[in-house]
Design a protein around this nucleic acid. Structure first.
Length: 268
DNA sequence: ATGGTCGCGAGGCGA
């Protein structure tokens, strides 16, 4: 079985790309982020045509997450327990479409689009950190209750956990950029400490290995990227992993998403 | 070529 995660940066703009990728990737389960659409204009027929069931959580042109599967799609959950919404100080929080889960082929798959903190002193930063803490609590609760549960927390985490995960750490730190700050990294480490492992890194060692390249400044041809898309596996799932890869080819050419698909191979 | 992006949705925001 093969599972993957991909921030497509608009599913409608990327429909042909996604269909072509599904055709040649031999992927059984795909977690999608940034569909940027509603259920009304979601390309349902694309997945039907390709033989995938699909569940979507999207309400407007922002965010939006989906899971496509050809090995079953059961128990769909939209948002996780305790998932905070965003609201500026003094206003009511609004739930955003950033998490969807389903059980596919015996694996509880989560498609996650972690909030972008925007800036270290922006109101979105505590939102991001609280969001990650709630996710940790929820995921930890599942594996504590049943250690045999196979869980894949996968998506765009908007965090570069280690210095080598950005193309110029000195620039990021000196400019006070997000994604590399200690609180963000601590939130990521807390999820690892809860029992979830980055199962891709052992098969895609760095430095210089990334999953995202900004559209501006010719970042991709200059190999100036960031590693911010991850598959974090519970112990029972991690034990099944036999390989992983980052499909850097998919970032090439006209009409590419700014993120590459990340794939994980599972035994049997 | 000494600059250089997309997508959404119709001006500016978000990444």
């Amino acid at each position: 079985m093969k599972i993957a995660t991909w921030n497509v940066n608009s599913l409608r703009a990327r429909a042909d790309r996604v269909e072509g990728w599904l055709r040649r990737s031999d992927c059984d389960v795909l977690a999608i982020q940034e569909t940027k659409c509603t259920d009304d204009n979601f390309p349902w027929e694309l997945f039907e045509r390709m033989g995938y069931e699909v569940a979507h959580f999207g309400m407007n042109q922002w965010n939006g997450v989906a899971i496509a599967s050809r090995v079953g799609l059961e128990g769909v959950e939209r948002a996780f327990m305790g998932q905070p919404g965003f609201g500026k100080a003094g206003t009511d929080p609004v739930q955003e479409c950033r998490a969807i889960a389903a059980t596919c082929g015996g694996v509880q798959v989560w498609s996650l689009y972690v909030p972008n903190g925007r800036a270290l002193n922006d109101e979105h930063m505590p939102y991001k950190l609280g969001w990650l803490d709630s996710l940790k609590e929820h995921a930890q609760g599942i594996v504590t209750h049943n250690p045999d549960t196979q869980i894949a927390l996968m998506g765009d985490w908007n965090i570069a956990p280690r210095d080598e995960d950005v193309w110029d750490i000195d620039l990021f730190l000196s400019q006070g950029y997000t994604h590399v700050s200690e609180p963000e990294r601590a939130a990521f480490r807390a999820i690892e400490a809860a029992g979830f492992t980055d199962v891709v890194r052992p098969y895609t060692p760095g430095p210089g290995v990334y999953t995202y390249w900004d559209y501006t400044q010719l970042r991709f041809p200059k190999k100036q990227g960031m590693r911010i898309d991850f598959v974090l596996a519970s112990p029972a799932l991690a034990a099944r992993v036999t390989g992983a890869s980052i499909d850097r080819e998919e970032r090439k050419g006209k009409g590419a998403s700014d993120h590459a698909p990340v794939l994980v191979d599972l035994a049997e």
